[in-house]
Simulated scan of single mutants.
Amino acid sequence: MSRQKIKLLALSGFLICIQTAQANGLSQLSDEELSNIEGQALFNLNKTDNSSQGLSFYRLGMEAEIALNANIKKLQLGCGGSKGAGCDIDIDNVALTGITTSNAQGAGATTDFILNNPFVEFAISNSNQASTRSIEGFRLGALSALGMMSLGSNENTSTLTDDTGINSLSGDIGVRVTNANINGINITLIGTANARVNDYSGTIIADRSTSFSLTGLKATARLMLGGFIPVPIDLQLTANMNNIPFNTAHRLQVSDVNGNPTSGAYLSLQKKDINWQNIATGQWNNIAAKKGWWLSVPDTQFANLTMDGSGVRLSALDAIGGILGATVDIPAMDLGQRPVNNCYGTLKFC
């Protein structure tokens, strides 16, 4: 086909489009009229100033939903540097899947971790001065997130000796514990006790930490007094679980208490402490992301925990103090979780 024929065909198509537009009643708009028209783009750019921090925040967002199923053998961020030996974040065997309670082979392989409206954001100081402006930090986040973050491995849920997962963590993690039970706690000279922990919520703030604590837990304990015929006694106790190794946390369900997506989750890197904004609410976080890498997950659910307390021994004095209203300190124990199996067939990750 000659070039002249191609040009004629193109011109004919253009004229047909014009005639079709005229037939459909389309009309020309002025610049002022166009400025009043709103549309939705795949990407959007926003700037927010925060004078109290002396920073301007530039955010590039994507109007999209990302469904993610991923395995990471080793995640290490912020190792060494000005903060010395160690890592800000050091985790073995991370899997991002949808929410499932199954421990079956490949239970997570057909599910997805959902990120709605992901974004990248930069914190800039002196943004109006080209000679002195500087990037103070950046973060990756999403308007909302929903899914399961599985960590490490745990073959034996009765002992801490084989747990792997989080070796160190920097961040703030909102924790809600529901339907948690501790069975078979040994109390010297008295007997054994089973405890049901009341629903609990709190925020863990970690800075290159290897362990965390849950304080002020309320529990109903059934104490079985030893003897020829054990006698059950029900007690209301306040307890602390101190120095729980992070590597015994194997399932972080990223959602609100009703299983809906949660807002405000992000991963950031900053040269100084920064209070980032929750873009869903417009509120500035009251917990600052500290220098280095920082993981913030405002809502995670620890549901249906069954903990084997047979390796825990409390003295009779501790038990009596609890009966009288004192806070009982419970030593760290395996939380009884196993990560979601996210293996495909014979492919090995877990």
Rank of each mutant, 00 (worst) to 15 (best):
D318C: 05
N285R: 14
C87Y: 00
S56R: 05
I190E: 03
I233W: 03
N194R: 08
L15R: 10
L169Y: 00
T238E: 10
A41S: 15
L151F: 02
D256F: 05
Y344P: 05
T188W: 03
A249Y: 00
Q236V: 13
A249V: 14
G292E: 00
D172Q: 09
G81V: 07
N36E: 13
G321W: 00
L252K: 06
A85T: 14
Q105G: 11
A142G: 11
R176G: 06
K290N: 10
T159K: 06
G137S: 08
K47T: 14
G13M: 14
N128P: 00
T101R: 12
A21Y: 05
T220Q: 11
T188H: 07
R313Q: 08
I18P: 02
N156S: 11
R139A: 05
G292R: 01
Q76I: 13
G152Y: 00
N126G: 06
K5V: 13
C17E: 12
P230E: 14
S201Y: 04
D162S: 10
S158N: 13
E63G: 10
N240M: 05
Q270D: 13
S144Y: 00
T97Y: 00
Q301D: 04
Q129W: 01
A95T: 11
S263C: 12
Y344T: 15
G39S: 12
G227Q: 08
Y266Q: 14
K218S: 14
K218R: 12
N24L: 14
E33W: 02
I229K: 10
L235Y: 01
L223T: 05
F113W: 01
Q236H: 10
L189H: 10
A85M: 09
S102F: 02
L160K: 03
A23G: 09
T192P: 02
N126M: 06
K218T: 11
S211M: 03
A104I: 08
